[in-house]
């Protein structure tokens, strides 16, 4: 009861926080906040797969980047936004279908490798198919008709409202019986099967849901940033997203969203340093070795190991 109360409190605080931001932040920072919300949404979609269903996707950027490219390509070809959005939906569903099918074909470690390879393959395609994606130079979407044509506040509002709605929807989903079943598949798939559930079907479905949410994030990103590169479908973003989720704490929805924001802020701070990938790698190592259940739980873990040492 106390727990539920404190959770609804944290929701209320987040809502207030999000609605106060545009009033206090200068444009540049508000733009940054908008971008962070998009990445948070992407992290949330991965948590549904990784945290709740136990599908360790190392190719999640595909779901983000392909709809983003779809919007970009269609808009650049001169079609109206609504056509671009429709094509993005189709693209997101198709990628969801293909990778969802793969998810049912491989499990555990195989899934990690196959999704990673898929991400790499899509990256190579995006990188070398210059006529379609702009290849090495990237794809630039003209300003008209995108979020960038609106005021920073309006763009923020659109992104914030979509993120909040999707978050609430996802929260409802994971708390429903369906969500419990997903966790059941993660904990013990054989038992879920023995109880008569078609676990492959559930894995397939949740992959599509996750792909759709990631697709929304990708489309919002395309409309906001207007510059797309092959990295958006590549293994680097894919694996980084896994770290965001781990950093914030899997299977919490809100944690991965905070993890994404935190990670990107750290990354931006380190970006100016030479050879910053070293620090990125070290951050990976620190999270995996010392904070496997999320940075938010790190103090607790340290306290525990401290106590264990003293009782021995």
């Amino acid at each position: 009861m106390v727990n539920a109360l404190s959770k609804s409190w944290s929701l209320a605080i987040s809502a207030v926080f999000l609605s106060v931001l545009p009033l206090v932040l200068p444009d540049y920072y508000l733009y940054l906040a908008t971008e962070l919300l998009i990445w948070a949404l992407f992290a949330l979609s991965l948590d549904l797969l990784l945290g709740y269903t136990g599908l360790p996707s190392f190719g999640h950027a595909i779901f983000f980047g392909i709809p983003a490219y779809a919007v970009g390509i269609i808009l650049t070809a001169g079609y109206p936004l609504i056509v671009a959005l429709l094509v993005a939906v189709v693209a997101a569903s198709l990628t969801g279908l293909i990778l969802g099918y793969l998810a049912t074909r491989t499990g555990g470690i195989g899934y990690i490798i196959v999704t990673l390879l898929a991400s790499f393959a899509v990256f190579l395609i995006a990188f070398s198919w210059t006529n379609l994606t702009g290849g090495e130079n990237g794809l630039y979407i003209s300003r008209a008709g995108t979020l960038a044509a609106l005021s920073t506040q309006a763009a923020y509002a659109i992104v914030a409202v979509s993120t909040a709605l999707i978050f609430l929807g996802a929260r409802w989903l994971v708390r429903s019986n369906y969500g419990l079943l997903l966790v059941g598949i993660k904990t013990n798939e054989t038992r879920a099967q023995a109880m008569g559930y078609n676990t492959q079907l559930y894995k397939f479905q949740i992959t599509i849901v996750s792909a759709m949410i990631a697709g929304v994030a990708g489309v919002l990103y395309a409309l906001l940033a207007r510059s797309l590169s092959a990295e958006l479908v590549g293994p680097e973003l894919s694996t980084e997203a896994v770290i965001w989720v781990l950093l914030g704490g899997t299977q919490t929805l809100l944690g991965p969203m905070l993890g994404a924001a935190l990670f990107i802020l750290i990354k931006q701070a380190l970006n100016t340093i030479r050879a910053y990938p070293i620090f990125l790698g070290l951050l990976f190592i620190v999270v995996v070795v010392w904070a496997p259940s999320g940075l938010l739980k790190l103090p607790k873990g340290l306290w525990k190991s401290f106590r264990r040492r003293n009782t021995r």
Binding site: T239, G281, L282
Partner: peptide, 8 residues
């Protein structure tokens, strides 16, 4: 993820 970090 750990080995990925080593890789970086």
């Amino acid at each position: 993820l750990l080995t990925l970090g080593f890789g970086y």
